[in-house]
Design a protein around this nucleic acid. Sequence first.
DNA 1: TTCCAATATTAGAATAGCTCTAAAATTCGT
DNA 2: ACGAATTTTAGAGCTATTCTAATATTGGAA
Lengths: 134, 134
Amino acid sequence: MENMEKFLQKHNVKPTPQRMVIAQFVVNSKSHPTADQIFQGVAEQLPVALSRATVYNTLNTLVQAGALKEVYLESGPARYDANINDHHHFIDVKTGKVFDIDADKVKALAPELGAGFKVHHYSVTFFGESKAAD
Amino acid sequence: MENMEKFLQKHNVKPTPQRMVIAQFVVNSKSHPTADQIFQGVAEQLPVALSRATVYNTLNTLVQAGALKEVYLESGPARYDANINDHHHFIDVKTGKVFDIDADKVKALAPELGAGFKVHHYSVTFFGESKAAD
DNA sequence: TTCCAATATTAGAATAGCTCTAAAATTCGT
DNA sequence: ACGAATTTTAGAGCTATTCTAATATTGGAA
């Protein structure tokens, strides 16, 4: 994908080994992994023991730095998404899979709610069935 | 507002004292209360001690019965909404207040995402500032 | 280079939100 | 009024996350 060291530096995050493998995992993943999935998938790649706290710290750091997005579905744990473009989500109600939907596809949703509201941003979550494989 | 006994019966939920005061509290509330807020606001209205489990059980029962909606914001506890019409939400980012937005106002969001997706439903959450008081 | 300060990481405790469990209380039909 | 079914309860348990305080690592300044 991309050089992780540069990726982190670009977002002003010091590239430590833990951060590199964590960011790499999320960037490689198409599946909007949870913190726990990241922890599981990444732990053995490191020479030293990895703490869950480090996973959470790192994810929070990367989200704050704008390198990742935190995605909240209807309930359950937060999920992490390396797609930081403006987008929404589509959740396959059968499989639970999460798809990114480009904001352009949802442009019709003009922020014209009436006089009383000034919209900063909005998020749309679709539920349905997807034919796409992944 | 409405007679709670009939309200519960209409949704095939047996009207017990606990359920009556819990449903009443949510119906009266404009603020999308959390389970804990409901527990706090309701406990002293009952002659006997109220358990949190009862609050959760009752809310789940009412949601399943279609009498209430469960609303998930970006993070934090679930919130409960007696507006069961098709609607979305507006969150004031300054105050945290949650407003219902009628689905008609968001109709432009035609479920035409392309060939790959069949949309069952979608939810929209707006973030911004509201002039409305409540 | 070596010391110090700043930063990062760790294990585990703590917290929040919610569900589960098993016992007690209540309700309902006979 | 009796037994079965349902509801409620207190508290244990679980999941997701943050906090804490100790340890490890890093990165200058001398």
